[in-house]
């Protein structure tokens, strides 16, 4: 049994497919590659393949992670060389390594993700830099942001998502470029919030209405795990 952890980049237009479609896409590519996949036990054996954190629809990504188990030994380089030709151009494998079978699962490791939000050039929205900064400051000054969530029993409940917004910052020094800001958001089993939701909470000009996620191109830059109480990029895990 061999466990390979790999990283990849997701570019446009593949941002427009859902998490489940991403899983199916990888599994079909793996099947075409004829690499010796390992299967789960039981009635309905499945290839042992996971992605660290679902990518929301419309979001590109710079450093995503996935894991796959093989029945035979595979060299990490061989994995990339054989799988990459079976993937669409917009999915680029950027690294791979053999991982100890005892290492915790990716899904249990990931606890935060950073995002870069850029105002689309096709958007008709104009926002002043200072006003965006002020809106982000107001957001962070709140103690509570109540989001309507569905519970398991198909009911709805309000959850305070403010604690899940760890960091926000405007990236532009001036407005010569497209407006851009970054978010560090908690994710995983301890609760989380999506970047689209956070954008929808911003109101740069009071009374002019909130921003819309669809006017922003969102890119997930990095995934983080918690080590000794601080967030470390997943790429730093050895």
């Amino acid at each position: 049994m061999m466990r390979i952890r790999f990283s990849f980049e997701r570019k446009m237009p593949l941002a427009y497919i859902s998490h489940l479609d991403m899983l199916r896409l990888f599994l079909r590519a793996l099947s075409r590659s004829r690499l010796p996949l390992a299967y789960s036990q039981g009635y309905n054996p499945h290839p042992r393949f996971t992605l660290a954190l679902p990518l929301p629809l419309g979001i590109t990504a710079g450093e995503e992670y996935g894991e796959v188990f093989f029945a035979d030994k595979i060299m990490p380089d061989q994995f990339i060389n054989v799988l990459q030709p079976q993937l669409p151009e917009a999915l680029v494998l950027t690294g791979s390594a053999a991982v100890d079978p005892e290492e915790p699962s990716l899904a249990s490791l990931v606890s935060a993700a950073s995002y870069c939000c850029t105002l689309k050039s096709s958007s008709s929205v104009t926002v002043k830099l200072e006003l965006l900064q002020a809106a982000l400051d107001r957001l962070m000054a709140k103690e509570e942001i109540l989001a309507l969530r569905k519970t398991k029993k198909n009911k709805t409940t309000y959850t305070n998502v403010r604690p899940y917004i760890i960091e926000v910052s405007v990236k532009n020094a001036d407005q010569s470029k497209l407006l851009e800001f970054s978010l560090l958001l908690q994710t995983g089993s301890q609760g989380g919030v999506s970047p689209g939701y956070v954008i929808g909470q911003l109101e740069p000009e009071p009374g002019a209405g909130n921003l819309h996620a669809y006017d922003w191109q969102i890119r997930r830059e990095r995934l983080y795990f918690k080590q000794n109480g601080s967030m470390q990029p997943l790429s730093e895990r050895r």
Binding site: R28, L30, S31, R32, Q86
Partner: peptide, 8 residues
């Protein structure tokens, strides 16, 4: 078909 598509 299976070689070219990867369908299960």
């Amino acid at each position: 078909l299976i070689a070219a598509t990867g369908y299960d």
